[in-house]
Amino acid sequence: VRTLFMVFLILYILTRAGNAIIVTAIHKDHHLHTPMCFFLSVLSTSETFCSFLVGLSQSISLEGCGTQLFLFLGFAITNCLLLAVIGCGRYVAICNPPHYSVIMNWRVCAMLAFSVSATGFSLSMVQAVAISRLPFCKALIEHFFPHVQPVLNLACATPIINDILTLIISLLAITGPATFLFIPYILIISTILKIASVEGRKKAFATCASHLAVVIVHSGCASIAYFKPKSENSKDEDQLISVTYTVITPLLNPAVYSLRNKEVQDTLQRVVSRNPFPKMRSLPK
């Protein structure tokens, strides 16, 4: 148990530090003020808040539990929708590069970021309000943070409506974005195969593979957590899946996606290479 605690503590610290470095680097370097890096910074910020909510106090009031559930779901759904938006940006950049700057202008980027955030927290609000109306007979959540199913297990009555609502929201937030990316990636792969340069094909495939890996792992863990039948759920399995979804998955953004970006790498190298301490000169005699 102590070993697992240390492993997940290290992963948690790396996740917080990695996302903080990405946001800081993009904010400081004007070379990274691009639509793609903008969405990466929004995703890193959302992931940071999402992982921060996991580390809150063990004792929590009913109102605090509902607030934490609302915030966590809001950021989690926003992350899923952001990955779909980033995938669409990749599609425009590869399949229609001459019009990329026109289509993905700053006004469109700001509207997309606001829309996915508003959608994420709107769906989260519906879920949180529906759960808050239930009568609760237990006070101990058998989980390390307020999660949908463990909170529903505290209800006195069988929350059939809430189960249906959870399924609908999960379909909209997880299955919807993943399915939406299916057609763009078919077109992206088709376009990449037409690139004459072998080096160009490798670069395009590497860029898309990073994003696709994050989407598959993120959507896969979320699907297991929310779509797994209750009869197959055990407390230990639920907690293991949730730890993977809330601790390991957020680490993929800085480790697999952002830090493999050549521009981000160059920025970090420039920051590290700078001498933070000014040279000391002796006073004249």
Rank of each mutant, 00 (worst) to 15 (best):
Q127K: 07
M111K: 10
C109E: 08
V1D: 03
Y91I: 00
I186E: 01
S258E: 05
N19P: 01
T15N: 13
S44W: 03
I13Y: 02
T158V: 09
A204L: 06
F136W: 02
T244Q: 06
D29K: 01
S57W: 07
M125V: 07
Y257E: 13
P254K: 06
V85N: 01
P284A: 11
L32N: 03
S124F: 12
S210N: 15
H211N: 10
S282A: 12
R201A: 06
L134W: 00
A206H: 07
N96S: 10
I86C: 14
P35W: 05
F205W: 13
L62T: 12
L187W: 06
V198G: 01
M6C: 07
A25T: 14
S46Q: 06
L14A: 14
P276G: 02
V116G: 02
V151S: 03
I186Q: 08
K194E: 14
F8W: 10
S282V: 14
W106V: 00
T191K: 15
G200Y: 02
L154I: 05
L165R: 11
A25K: 05
L83V: 13
I188F: 04
I241W: 15
L9T: 10
I86L: 15
S242T: 12
A213M: 09
I188C: 07
Q68E: 08
Y226V: 10
G120H: 05
F277T: 02
T249K: 04
A173W: 08
I188G: 01
L268F: 02
S197R: 08
H99A: 10
N79V: 12
R16Y: 09
E63I: 03
L14Y: 04
F38N: 05
C221M: 15
L134Y: 02
S46Y: 04
R90Q: 13
L134V: 00
I186Y: 08
L43P: 00
P159A: 10
S282R: 14
